[in-house]
């Protein structure tokens, strides 16, 4: 016990919470394998989690960065829907080019970051209110762009959507006795690149460390010579740009535009970040944790749906219960640690 408490004391908050997250995810996955049978042992089951959640991983990375800086952005789900709809309309109704559609996604993200970042950082308006309005705006704009949902039939786009990257050696034999290769979608590759890039950004760049400093104590960061306003602005820029990219990855996964797309994605992103050890008070968090947070969240969802509890409400209730448990664990562990330090 003594040893544990001294170890707790010496660990930084970020590493402590990260450890908890990874341990919990591994336990959960083992639990899933034990109770839900062999489905989860196939590598493809794991890759499917990635395929289905590539967009969420990207959104959560952005969310973590804003949260580490001490802010929040609940507009990411709306931006995802807006990006999907704009790109869909462009590709099908205007016979557009896939590369340009990507540019559109990126521009929407950048524009969001510019406006929200400016309002939060330079006019000092609460990020919650700004991004709340941002969410309203995005959802409303999506229906203004096009009211009805539709599938995109642009040939280039469909080809890109169907592209699968085979992972050698990880395949499995299906029910008919045929060997099926394991695969991931393009979105997963983008998501992994984002995870790595954001990890490097947070760990090894001055800007990344400024995010932590501003989130830890704004006033102190200012006194330490950090440009707090610019740092806040950039955190929102990155988050919204990632929302644009994530939006496109989502679009690539579902292949359609609809106003109801990514409903509640902002909440999932926040939940993933928190499960991954990001503290909403700011200053503590890790991208690797966030990555595992998304995996944990979706594993739970899978367990629930494969347990035959199909009614929609069970998913909601279990995710909520899990979030609740994680928050309580975080709060208890941090309180313990504080007590250990005082002694």
């Amino acid at each position: 016990m003594e040893k544990v408490s001294t170890k707790l004391k010496n660990m930084t908050d970020t590493n402590l919470l990260l450890t908890i997250t990874i341990v919990v995810f591994i336990l959960m996955y083992i639990g899933a394998v034990l109770f839900q049978g062999k489905g989860f042992t196939k590598p493809q089951a794991f890759f499917n989690i990635l395929n289905n959640n590539a967009a969420l991983i990207i959104l959560s990375c952005g969310m973590s960065i804003v949260m580490i800086t001490g802010g929040i952005d609940i507009s990411v789900g709306g931006v995802t829907a807006l990006v999907s709809m704009c790109c869909a309309v462009y590709l099908d109704y205007h016979n557009g080019n896939v590369a340009v559609s990507m540019l559109i996604a990126l521009l929407i993200g950048l524009a969001y970051g510019l406006v929200q970042g400016f309002l939060v950082a330079y006019l000092d308006i609460q990020p919650f209110i700004v991004s709340l309005a941002g969410m309203f705006f995005a959802r409303g704009m999506t229906t203004i762009v096009n009211t009805n949902p539709f599938n995109v039939e642009n040939a280039d786009f469909v080809a890109l959507k169907e592209t699968r990257i085979i992972i050698p050696g990880m395949g499995s034999v299906n029910k008919l006795g045929k060997y099926v290769d394991a695969y991931v979608e393009i979105g997963v590759v983008i998501a992994l690149i984002v995870v790595i890039a954001m990890f490097i950004l947070l760990r090894w760049t001055k800007l990344g460390r400024s995010f932590y400093a501003v989130g830890g104590n704004k006033q102190s960061a200012l006194m330490l010579g950090i440009n707090v306003k610019r740092t806040k602005f950039l955190s929102h820029m990155i988050c919204s740009t990632l929302a644009g990219i994530g939006g496109y990855v989502y679009f690539l996964h579902v292949g359609s535009g609809a106003a109801t797309h990514a409903q509640g994605a902002e909440m999932n992103a926040i939940a993933s970040s928190i499960i991954g050890g990001t503290m909403l008070t700011g200053g503590v968090g890790n991208i690797i944790g966030t990555f595992f947070g998304v995996l944990s969240l979706s594993t739970i969802k899978d367990i629930v749906s494969s347990a035959g509890l199909d009614q929609a409400w069970w998913t909601g209730i279990t995710i909520a219960a899990m979030l609740c448990i994680f928050l309580v664990i975080q709060s208890v562990v941090m309180a313990r640690k504080k007590r250990a330090i005082r002694k």
């Binding site: 909520a320 979030l323 309580v328």
Partner: peptide
Amino acid sequence: FKIQPMIATLILYTAGRSIAAW
């Protein structure tokens, strides 16, 4: 548990309508 209110209530936000249906 000293959880930030927005996050604490996120739990009920996620589960509430499901509970209502149940």
